[in-house]
């Protein structure tokens, strides 16, 4: 009774005003993001327009990238971006899944924290460090020990053989994919671990209570429950792999060519921009580089939209079955 009486009308009005103010401030912050996104899209399109208008569709269908004759086609960087990211996810997702399952379901208590912290620390290492490590440490090892083996053993095979031919440079598409995989593992595994931890113990214990093995509980209780979150983690990793610049630039070999071999040098969208923007002279050249940026923006957007769509469909199915 006392507390209610203590609030004077004047005080209440002040309270309301503050609330309105706060609501306005948060709305402003949210709108700022939209405005930024719109601004980025607009300036990318304006910057890319001269190149897109000049080359039309051939900008994304041609492999040529020749600053001397002012001819630009983005096929090689698009190919490099997609292939390195795909290979990186192919390597990183199973490993991350293993790490997350081990940490949440199998690891003894004393090991959980140190390994968990170590993975979080890996996520905090700047990408340039990964790049330098890739160039100075990983590339020579691949060049001397791994790639000659790939060329000798897998090279002569039918079908997949052509992916493993050519001289062992040490750097190239495959090396870039390795470095990217190592870079995204901490992200993907950290998200997956957090998601697995949200699985209620009651569910798991019910499974064990029915006589299920650890394997069965993981595959039939934990994974179905955490599926949407796992996909979110994978998409986060993929987003990072698509846009990664510095580490890739160091180890991909930076050639505007599409080679069938994974050992051949290639390039990615962000690596091309990082390499060439500073010294690019001429309107068409700079505009083509901006157009590359717009393409990367589009690819990332499509990936995220696809992930959202997949999540929505999964949720609907989960609701339907429940």
């Amino acid at each position: 009774m006392n507390t209610v009486a203590a609030i004077s009308p004047k005080h209440a009005a002040g309270q309301r005003r503050r609330e309105r103010l706060f609501r306005g401030a948060t709305l402003g912050a949210a709108l700022l993001v939209l405005a930024l996104l719109g601004g980025v899209t607009l300036s990318l399109l304006i910057g890319a327009w001269p190149a897109l208008a000049h080359f039309k569709l051939s900008f994304i269908t041609r492999e040529i990238w020749n600053p001397v004759t002012d001819q630009y086609g983005a096929l090689a960087p698009i190919y490099g971006t997609l292939v390195t990211s795909f290979l990186a996810m192919l390597l990183a997702v199973p490993v991350s899944f293993g790490i997350a399952i081990f940490l949440t379901e199998l690891a003894p208590g004393w090991l959980k924290r140190p390994v968990g912290v170590a993975i979080e620390l890996l996520a905090a290492v700047p990408s340039i460090i990964y790049g330098i490590w890739g160039l100075f440490v990983l590339a020579p090892v691949l060049q001397r020990h791994v790639q000659p083996w790939l060329i000798d053993v897998l090279g002569p095979l039918p079908l997949i053989g052509k992916f493993f031919q050519g001289p062992p440079f040490g750097i190239g598409i495959l090396t870039a994919a390795f470095v990217l995989a190592i870079m995204v593992i901490p992200f993907v595994s950290a998200v997956m671990r957090d998601v697995f931890e949200t699985v209620p113990d009651v569910l798991k214990e019910s499974g064990y209570g029915l006589g299920a093995t650890t394997w069965e509980v993981i595959w039939q209780v934990v994974v179905p429950y955490a599926r949407t979150g796992m996909i979110g983690g994978v998409m986060l990793g993929l987003g990072r792999a698509l846009g990664e610049t510095m580490a890739v630039t160091f180890v991909i070999g930076n050639a505007h060519r599409i080679g069938t071999s994974l050992l051949a040098p290639g390039t990615t969208i962000s690596a091309s921009i990082a390499n060439e923007f500073a010294e690019a002279v001429g309107d068409l050249y700079t505009s083509s580089l901006v157009a590359l940026g717009a393409l990367l923006f589009l690819i990332t957007f499509v990936v995220i939209a696809a992930a959202r769509l997949m999540l929505m469909r999964l949720e609907r199915r989960a609701l339907g079955s429940a």
């Binding site: 040529i64 990238w65 020749n66 600053p67 001397v68 440079f169 750097i171 190239g172 630039t249 160091f250 070999g253 930076n254 050639a255 505007h256 040098p265 390039t267 390499n275 060439e276 010294e279 690019a280 002279v281």
Partner: peptide, 14 residues
């Protein structure tokens, strides 16, 4: 001749 050119062979390092 240019500050970057399209090399037909080889590998590019930064």
């Amino acid at each position: 001749a240019n500050t970057s050119v399209q090399w037909p062979v080889g590998i590019g390092a930064k």
